[in-house]
């Protein structure tokens, strides 16, 4: 082979198989072949830049720019780099929740990517609906729980608070260190009214007592703790004014006995105990005291009962 042709051939071979060693100085080439040598060097350098860019892209490095201006050999690779950079941005937007992103002009890849974004959006919408449905169910359940809780604290016959509510409130107030009074009330004669007149009459008698007791204080809790037994829990009251208030209410009830249509004696007995803010006595003791005072009251007023024909 001609020595010049051999030199150019070797350079090209090195450029392909041993690129690090490939070297050619066009100035050493005779003038007739110098432009060919320059073109060859330019082409080899252009390809080398393309290879470097391809390696960078393969490593995921999308922001490098190893190209000389005007390297037309690299234009396809540069378009690929631009597409990947754009896809990176689009994927970041999708990751942030923008499911309106669409890829275009990238053939099958566009279709696959757009399908994926649509599926992600669909799944997100389904999950949103599921979460919303879950919230609604949860709210409905919570409403049911609230309703049941409310029911569990009420006496079904009168609608006022029941024993459970009364005892829990008492313990809660004690835990909070609050001062209040406990008033036990026993409705006199209820058994007699039930037996002699009817349970409907007995219920009316209870309803009348409830109306009366609720007038104790609008902030007090009136609880039915047994068939003919009630308890009032009231903050901001002391024993003496509470006794006076109960005496007033009892007198109101006794006044019913003066009405001509009244067929049985209306009366109630009560016992009050005041609970201090840091009262050392256990609740059971306080309840016993209130109960005892109520029975003392009942015994003391037994003789007052009016007898009806």
């Amino acid at each position: 082979m001609d020595p010049i042709a051999q030199k150019l051939f070797d350079y090209l071979k090195d450029a392909i198989y041993r690129p690090a060693k490939a070297a050619l100085d066009p100035e050493e080439i005779p003038e007739d072949f110098r432009d060919l040598a320059r073109g060859l060097v330019y082409y080899v350098e252009s390809v080398r830049e393309v290879t470097t860019l391809a390696d960078d892209i393969a490593r995921g490095e999308l922001n490098t720019s190893p190209l000389s201006p005007g390297n037309e050999v690299a234009s396809g690779m540069k378009s690929l780099q631009a597409s990947l950079r754009h896809l990176t941005w689009q994927t970041q937007q999708v990751a942030k929740g923008d499911y309106q992103q669409r890829v275009s002009f990238m053939g099958d890849f566009s279709e696959a990517m757009n399908d994926m974004i649509e599926q992600l959006d669909k799944r997100r919408q389904e999950m949103t609906h599921e979460i919303e449905a879950g919230h609604e169910k949860n709210e409905a359940l919570m409403a049911d729980v609230d309703k049941l809780t409310a029911i569990s604290y009420r006496d079904p016959a009168t609608g006022i608070y029941n024993r459970r509510f009364g005892m829990e409130t008492l313990e809660k107030w004690r835990d909070e260190g609050q001062g209040f009074i406990i008033c036990f009330i026993d409705l006199d004669n209820l058994k007699y009214v039930n037996d002699e007149f009817s349970h409907a009459q007995g219920d009316a008698y209870i309803a009348l007592a409830v109306d009366l007791l609720q007038g104790f204080d609008s902030n007090a809790y009136v609880c039915r703790i047994g068939g003919d037994e009630f308890m009032i829990l009231a903050r901001g009251w002391d024993e003496e004014p509470a006794n006076e208030r109960m005496a007033t209410l009892r007198n109101e009830m006794l006044s019913i006995n003066e009405r001509p249509e009244t067929r049985y004696h209306h009366s109630m007995s009560y016992g009050i105990v005041a609970v201090g803010q840091s009262d050392p006595r256990p609740s059971s003791e306080l309840l016993t005291i209130a109960d005892e005072r109520m029975y003392q009251f009942k015994r003391a007023h037994k003789a007052e009962r009016k007898v009806y024909a």
Partner: peptide, 25 residues
């Protein structure tokens, strides 16, 4: 911004001005 870029992309495509692609913001 994303909606604006999407609208702009579509407008440039519709009017055949070019294919706009955001790389970084």
């Amino acid at each position: 911004l994303n909606a604006f870029v999407a609208n702009l992309q579509k407008a440039l495509e519709d009017l055949k001005i070019g294919i706009l692609r955001m790389e970084a913001f």
